[in-house]
Design a protein around this nucleic acid. Structure first.
Length: 347
DNA sequence: GAGTTGAGAAGCTTTACATCA
DNA sequence: ACTGATGTAAAGCTTCTCAAC
């Protein structure tokens, strides 16, 4: 097979968890500017733009990095900033998500495949065609065929969403459904609150589903596996979009901060030059410029600290530990992390 | 009218399997 | 019989888009 993969394309395609180009940039900045600290713990999904510094986390195995993001609903993994392009390149290994448990699926072990069971690639997933799994609400929209083709309009949607009506009915396979495109406008399914809540919970656990999880979830929610799949696809796409917006804002702030710092440093340089012209003899007695140190953690240049007692005693070497956030490294913008899904209507 | 959201389509990668030298 | 290369089909994913609400 011919593999002509555009790197940019790859980054975009598999950017969830890494966020592609823009993300890499922001992370590079953050990596260069921030001192080392432990990685922030995964936050609850409902938190938006938490006060977390964009610090690079210690490199993790790829699957772990991905999972960190996925489990917390984070598509922007801080650790991605330390990843090399090869790490950015691939999706997580399927096992990373397939082995996770879904506590909300009571009594359904969707994660444990029967020993030795591997679904043949070519075989159609019978679970996906589960005939009885049709949403009480979805008997309509899920029936819609191709775009533009009017779907069968049958039944109404339970907007309230409390209890799904009896699933029964359905009985039609996807094939049947898609085939019946006769007349009537396409009614749109509205997932019930309960269904949405369970899906959200599930998404917090895994942002992708394996076939078994999908089937179990569909069964539990009285939806078709295809509907669950679509919901997850949309959720991923929209979460990523939100995160991209957040990252964009963050990058703007980074840019402003760096620009301001650049101006300040240029002014400083100009002042120092002027000073040197005015009083060259003073500078002759000063230590050579090699006393500038590099912060070992963030590799930023720091002016040498004024001679202190420690230094006089020879106890301080060059390149000492970087001061905390308020040190000479300047302000580091705090990159917000979008961890919440698209706002849901509260109706 | 704008925002949200379920869903279809296109295009891509991955993977299992078959075939062949 | 075994092995590596190659082709193919199916499934899943992302992205874009539409349309109903």
């Amino acid at each position: 097979m011919e593999m002509m993969v555009n790197a940019t394309d790859q980054e975009q395609r598999y950017g969830d968890g890494h966020l592609g180009l823009g993300l890499s940039l922001s992370l590079s900045i953050a990596t260069a500017a921030a001192p080392v600290e432990p990685a922030p713990a995964p936050r609850p999904i409902s938190v938006v733009a938490p006060p977390v510094c964009s610090l690079p986390a210690p490199p993790l195995p790829q699957a772990a990095q991905w999972w960190n993001g996925a489990a917390a609903g984070l598509f922007f993994s801080p650790s991605a900033g330390t990843m090399d392009p090869s790490q950015l390149e691939r999706k997580p290994p399927p096992a990373a998500c397939h082995d996770m448990t879904m506590p909300f699926l009571r009594g359904i072990d969707v994660n444990r495949a029967p020993p030795g069971e591997t679904r043949p690639r070519g075989a159609s997933c019978s679970e996906d065609e589960e005939p009885g799994a049709s949403s009480p609400n979805s008997t309509l929209s899920s029936l819609s065929g191709k775009r533009g083709a009017p779907a069968r309009s049958s039944g109404e949607v339970d907007r309230d969403g409390g209890t799904p009506r009896a699933a029964g009915g359905g009985g039609g396979s996807d094939d049947e459904d898609s085939g019946a495109g006769s007349g009537g406008s396409r009614k749109k399914l509205r997932l019930s609150k309960d269904q949405a809540a369970v899906l959200e919970e599930s998404f917090k656990e895994h942002n992708t589903l394996n076939p078994k999880q999908k089937a179990a979830l569909a069964k539990q929610l009285n939806l078709k596996p295809r509907q669950v799949e679509v919901w997850f696809q949309n959720r991923r796409a929209r979460t990523k979009l939100k995160q991209t917006e957040v990252d964009c804002e963050f990058l703007k702030r980074c840019c402003e901060t760096l620009t301001e710092e650049n101006r300040r440093l240029q002014r400083e340089v100009a002042e120092l030059r002027a000073l040197k012209l005015v009083a060259p003899h003073h500078y002759a007695r000063m230590p050579p410029p090699t006393t500038l140190t590099i912060c070992p953690s963030c590799e930023r240049l720091a002016a040498a600290a004024p001679p202190a007692a420690d230094e006089a005693a020879g106890r301080v070497g060059r390149g000492g530990a970087a001061p905390a956030p308020t040190g000479p490294w300047g302000p580091v913008p705090v990159r917000p992390v979008f961890v919440d899904g698209p706002a849901r209507r509260s109706s």
